[in-house]
Simulated assay, not measured.
Amino acid sequence: MRSAFDFAPFRRSTVGFDRLFDMLENSGTGQAQENYPPFDLIRLGENDYRIELAVAGFQPNEIDITAQQNVLIVSGKKKEESDNKGSDYIYRGIATRSFERRFALADHIQVRGADLKDGLLAIELVREIPEAMKPRKISIGGEQPASQQTLEAQREAENA
């Protein structure tokens, strides 16, 4: 099933966004989205983010966080509780089912760390753009940027 929106005009006028358009076109297809566990996405700063997942009842050793290229996978598998074998639940409202939540990450997003406190799993993310990818001023006429001139001057001093 194709998306109701046609991305062809954007594909013609952009370079390197194929992955984004593919993701947008395929987002409505496939299996239904799972709503468990609920989560919040928080922007802390220009390059800092946090994902908070409500994982009440899970211990840190029952949760697995895997960062792959452009994908963050958070999964949880509740261990069998032997303590409550004799217990007879009248109502069980705290979900203890296994889950897997996937988050698509933009390029250069790194997982800084994770913490579990009061039933909330907080995953800290940061965008770390490599120096070579940051914008730089290009001069016309063959002049080198000042930083390049400084590097060459240092090399000449080392060779002398």
Rank of each mutant, 00 (worst) to 15 (best):
A4R: 08
F5W: 03
F5E: 05
D6S: 14
T14S: 13
V15F: 14
G16M: 07
D18P: 07
L20Y: 14
D22F: 06
D22V: 12
E25S: 08
N26M: 09
T29G: 15
Q31E: 04
A32M: 12
F39R: 11
D40G: 07
D40I: 06
L41K: 01
R43S: 09
L44V: 03
N47K: 04
R50W: 03
I51S: 05
I51F: 04
A54F: 04
V55E: 09
V55C: 04
E62G: 05
D64E: 08
I65T: 13
Q68F: 00
N70V: 00
N70H: 13
S75E: 07
K79Y: 02
E81Q: 01
S82V: 12
K85E: 10
G86H: 02
D88E: 10
I94Y: 07
R102V: 00
R102Y: 09
A104C: 03
L105Y: 06
L105K: 14
R112F: 06
L116D: 10
K117P: 10
K117V: 15
L120K: 14
L120A: 12
L120N: 12
L121A: 09
L125Q: 01
V126R: 04
R127E: 11
E128C: 03
M133N: 03
K134Q: 05
K137R: 11
I138K: 03
I138W: 04
S139D: 13
G142V: 05
E143M: 15
T150H: 03
A153E: 15
R155I: 14
E156A: 08
A157W: 08
A157E: 15
N159K: 10
